[in-house]
């Protein structure tokens, strides 16, 4: 079981390492979306610090959605996905492995970029630290819930936009708790409650989302 999970992980990471272009696009998308906001609302430092946590979190959800539409699509096109689903190994582990790989490829680099953007938005140091923790806890939710949407919209025309429509409402709790934690630090009410709830939501997604995504994948491949 573990070997299958590791094999899926290693395969997806290798594929990503050989196609660095895709990987970079999502990261630059994150930077660009976040950088457009100061141009839209003005450069006043207080205002930027006020909207910064929310903007960075929204940008992170959009960046993850951009890459999620291809979570299963490439393997579906060359037929390898059907073979993996038909194999005696559980489909749940396949989905979990792919979601984990997506998080490692697209979620973790966001953690490296976010502090730089945080400085651009005039966030204080402790707020940036909380932003990092909230992204660390929250980005797995984006990959896990997104895998459900990617499985449901597999092979549909206009699948990318449809995926956004289906999954964004489900991201709302992650967005609220994630951005709320950073707001909490800045307003002095503390971040623990938000981070605890974000962690709970992450565990819940980890338990439920792979099962539903596996069912959805089987439905889509029938």
């Amino acid at each position: 079981m573990h070997r299958f999970l590791l094999a899926v992980l290693r395969r997806d990471l290798t594929l990503a390492a050989r196609r660095r272009g895709d990987w970079l696009i999502a990261q630059f998308f994150f930077v660009m979306v976040a950088s457009l906001f100061p141009l839209g609302v003005g450069p006043e430092p207080e205002m930027l610090a006020r909207i910064g946590p929310g903007v960075l979190w929204v940008a992170a959800t959009l960046a993850s959605l951009l890459s999620l539409s291809r979570l299963f699509a490439d393997d579906h096109q060359d037929g390898s996905l059907e073979h993996m689903v038909l194999s005696p190994e559980p489909t749940v582990l396949l989905v979990l492995g792919k979601a984990l790989a997506h998080w490692l490829i697209y979620g973790i680099p966001l953690l490296a970029i976010a502090p730089v953007l945080g400085i651009q938005f005039n966030l204080p140091a402790d707020a940036i630290l909380t932003l990092e923790i909230s992204l660390l806890l929250g980005t797995p939710i984006l990959s896990l819930l997104g895998s459900v949407g990617a499985a449901l919209t597999l092979g549909l025309r206009g699948g990318g936009v449809l995926l956004t429509l289906l999954i964004l409402p489900l991201y709302v709790p992650a967005l609220i708790f994630g951005a709320g934690a950073v707001d909490g630090v800045m307003s002095g009410t503390g971040a623990e409650a938000h981070l605890s709830l974000l962690g709970a939501f992450m565990v819940l997604s980890l338990i439920i989302a792979p099962w539903i995504a596996a069912s959805a994948l089987r439905v889509s491949l029938e």
Partner: peptide, 9 residues
């Protein structure tokens, strides 16, 4: 089936 799964989640 896809719609029902989405309704459930």
């Amino acid at each position: 089936r896809a719609g029902s799964l989405l309704t459930l989640i």
